[in-house]
Simulated scan of single mutants.
Amino acid sequence: MAGAALLAAALTACSGGSGGSGGSGGGDAKGGEAKKKDMAISVNLTGDQVKAGEPVKVTLADGKFSLVKVTDAKGGELPGRISDDGRTWTSERNAAPGAEYKVEAQNTDSQSASAQFRTTAADKVNKVAIVPGKATGGTVGIAQPISLVFDNPVKNKAEVEKQLKVTTSNNTEGSWGWFKDYSGNDRVDWRPKEYWKPGTEVKVQMNLNGVDSGSGLFARDYNTEFKIGKDRRLEVNLDTKTMSVIEDGRTVRTIPVSAGTPGGKKASWSGKMVLMTKEGTIRMDSQTVGLGDSYDKMVDYSMRVTWSGMYIHAAPWNAGKFGRVNSSSGCVGMSDADAEALFAQAQIGDLVEVVGEGSKGQADIGNGYGEWNLSWEQWKAKSALNGAPQAG
């Protein structure tokens, strides 16, 4: 192989026939068997300054492989497979940056050979922010997607998506979809075809170590796991100025609310959204969301619905408007008592749907979790792998 070092492992010569000694290669019918050639392998990556981000390929000079093992200094093994002709082994994953590897091989004649190489550190590392993560407590609502946001652009979207695996306890069908996050960064989410079924257990493996994103290598793998909790849906009706709390298909509470003021920037977003975070008591400043000096106050029982600042929260200053007038600056406000009770019940990932007249339309897909506003066919088309769905 061009540019590859040829590595031979010295082996003990085969014993000769009766009264003979090891042959030297020509073969002698009277003196014994011919000496076998030493096993020789070549590796596409050799030396101490190897660039990471490509598969490891091991080639046998003669004969067939019976075993090839490539391990890093921590004992981690690169998975791979031997070709049909037995002459080549190729890793299924790329060599990771800043790692030492040992190659050990055997052929069908029980001979062995080995090699070593060291990869250089990545010039630029791409990292991932993952939701759901530890902050969710391990249980989320039926509308929560899996969401990955990258700190550097992902140009090789198909190569990255191939390394993402979702496994569920009930073979949930879903698909990855690429778009821009509200931050402007590249983002890929995995959404089920339908809302999650309560009790579903989900594991996500992101085998990204050594994968080239097109603007930096990944330098580690990632994983997360979570479980789906109660089927809870929060439906805000702008016409009736109420929020219905629906659990397992049954309305358990109806809360008088005051949503965003119709007809301008202070209107509420509409459509299907997801309860993103439960932030509790926070400072809300209208200047941070482009609404001038409208407000600057501490707000209790705050639950985020969009990155742009739409919340569900307590709004005691608006008590006379609940159930009567939509007059907030875009959020859905209610009494302290109702907000406290809802905050205690609600879970991250619950569906939030706003219906009725007077909204400012649907938020962009990356402004929170807006993928539920797309049809299944529209969502699948956002996959980098030809829109092919995955069964988890």
Rank of each mutant, 00 (worst) to 15 (best):
Y195H: 06
E353Y: 04
V354L: 09
V131Q: 12
G210I: 12
A121H: 01
E235F: 06
D72P: 05
A344W: 03
C331N: 00
R233G: 03
K102I: 14
D151G: 13
V257C: 02
K227D: 00
G137E: 03
R81K: 15
G27C: 02
E194F: 10
K266I: 04
D336H: 11
S215G: 06
A4G: 01
K380L: 10
K278V: 05
G263T: 13
R187L: 15
T306V: 12
S328Y: 07
L385D: 04
S302C: 12
A135K: 10
L275M: 10
L291D: 05
A219Q: 02
L6C: 01
N185I: 00
G210Y: 11
E377G: 07
K37P: 08
Q205T: 10
K155V: 13
N223Q: 14
G22D: 06
G19M: 08
S42C: 11
K380W: 01
A115K: 00
E161W: 03
T200D: 07
Q111H: 08
I146M: 06
C14H: 05
E357Q: 10
V332L: 04
E201L: 13
L351C: 01
E247M: 08
R87W: 06
N318I: 00
G216V: 13
R253L: 07
L6S: 13
M243F: 04
V352D: 02
T242K: 10
D72V: 12
V299I: 13
N156F: 09
N209S: 15
K69S: 14
A13M: 07
D123Q: 14
